[in-house]
Design a protein around this nucleic acid. Structure first.
Lengths: 234, 234
DNA sequence: TCAAAAAATGGACGATTGTCCATTTATATG
DNA sequence: CATATAAATGGACAATCGTCCATTTTTTGA
């Protein structure tokens, strides 16, 4: 943290001779505007989509002037990257929070993940739209991949561990491992598919139905550990 | 079909006095160019995404001149709509073909749907990218929804019928219906999630693994009718 | 309090967007 | 073959894009 936090790194046209000491100075207004730009970017992505999220629309929502994007981030693409990073970190942090709050058993942790992914904090019009747009934009703005990739990989690892833990109660090591692999893959696809469905049918999407649907799959896979409401009580 | 096929409807600035008889004349070159524009649009969407699929890029791929889009479709948005319609119909037609070819049992039909959705004809870089881009674009080009909506609804009905058919072998009418509802919902989400995953990890995506994953879920739900390879033989 | 430094502004810039139309080219019919 | 009509062309057009920078405004420190 000697450099005062990476988030304050203003773009450097020639970053060979970064005038060291100056970087320490943090003015409150600057960091506020920095964040305002990121929030405005996410807002714009949600409201207009990546294709229509222009500099003009972003600064309009941020209530700042045109030059601020170049000043703070160097380019619009880099701003979008920072916004993606921010959104990813926020998702991740909330997920960790939910996992910590939940019980220690594998089925409790899994229930927490399902309920997290279908909660109004995560599955809402803004977040899901942003997620969809940024995902699509990875294709022609490769650096966006890094954020979602690390997060997805971490979630995948957690899920695999939990599913393997449960699967071992139903069979031997080898079959449990194979089962856990398949179920992890399917579970991730299932949750992402739910997000897609939410995006497409925001008016008629029913959280309760979605939840019951997921838990029915889990109940069928692990009948001793789940029912249609979630993890079975101890 | 008296008007020579709706696809030849050139935009009409004032369509009050459509000079009837002229519409009959179909020149081969015209319909060819019409199709070329639609194919070029899909190609551009796949290669550059919705955000970068400009008129210039589309006509470059079609090998035609700038004015053709306005001449044939009236506007770029209408061209994109027609392209979406075309892609949707192609998907639908191929699915129906697969269903007809498959055996009559519910498990055979379901196996056909899974294999169709994960086949190289459907799950390929071009088609999936186009699907993703058009889906996202629905948000700010509402008319795009109509095509995917009707198709999705039809698929949903087919799936529900098949799943209910199977579920009845495992329980009474009421529980079977509820199970079928949940499974239909989950199955659709699962397949869409697979498409998402394919899009994001085209390099490492494994069809076989995806297929096994889906069939494992189906096997767990309907153990008498599926194994890890697909429908159980008779 | 006042010069120096940092931060923010808003317009200029060339490039590109989608739309449209005056021409040109190709085809069909008398 | 000549003429009418359909089809295709490619540039003009205003609007908007992202980038950048000469200014102005604000804050800092002696």
């Amino acid at each position: 943290m000697t450099r005062g936090g990476a988030e304050m790194d203003v773009h450097a046209h020639d970053d060979k001779l970064q005038s060291s000491s100056d970087a320490q100075i943090l003015r409150a207004a600057k960091v506020k505007n920095h964040r305002a730009l990121i929030e405005a970017t996410l807002k714009t992505l949600a409201e207009l989509g990546y294709a229509n999220a222009s500099v003009s629309e972003i600064i309009k929502r941020a209530g700042l002037s045109r030059g601020m994007i170049h000043l703070h981030f160097g380019s619009k693409n880099k701003l979008v990257s920072e916004a993606a990073k921010h959104a990813s970190e926020r998702y991740h942090a909330f997920l960790e929070h939910c996992l910590e709050r939940a019980g220690p058993r594998a089925q409790d942790q899994l229930e927490a993940i399902v309920k997290h992914d279908l909660s109004e904090d995560v599955l809402n019009a803004t977040s899901v739209r942003v997620w969809y747009e940024l995902r699509g934009a990875i294709y022609f703005q490769k650096e966006l991949a890094s954020f979602s990739d690390t997060r997805d990989e971490r979630l995948r690892c957690i899920l695999f561990r939990l599913f393997k833990d449960l699967s071992l109660r139903y069979g031997d090591e080898d079959t449990a491992k194979e089962k856990a692999e398949d179920v992890t893959f399917a579970f991730l696809a299932l949750m992402e598919g739910m997000w897609n469905d939410y995006l497409l049918h925001q008016g008629s999407f029913q959280r309760a139905k979605a939840k019951r649907s997921v838990f029915r799959i889990l109940k069928t896979l692990f009948p001793d550990h789940f029912d249609l409401e979630g993890a079975k009580p101890a």
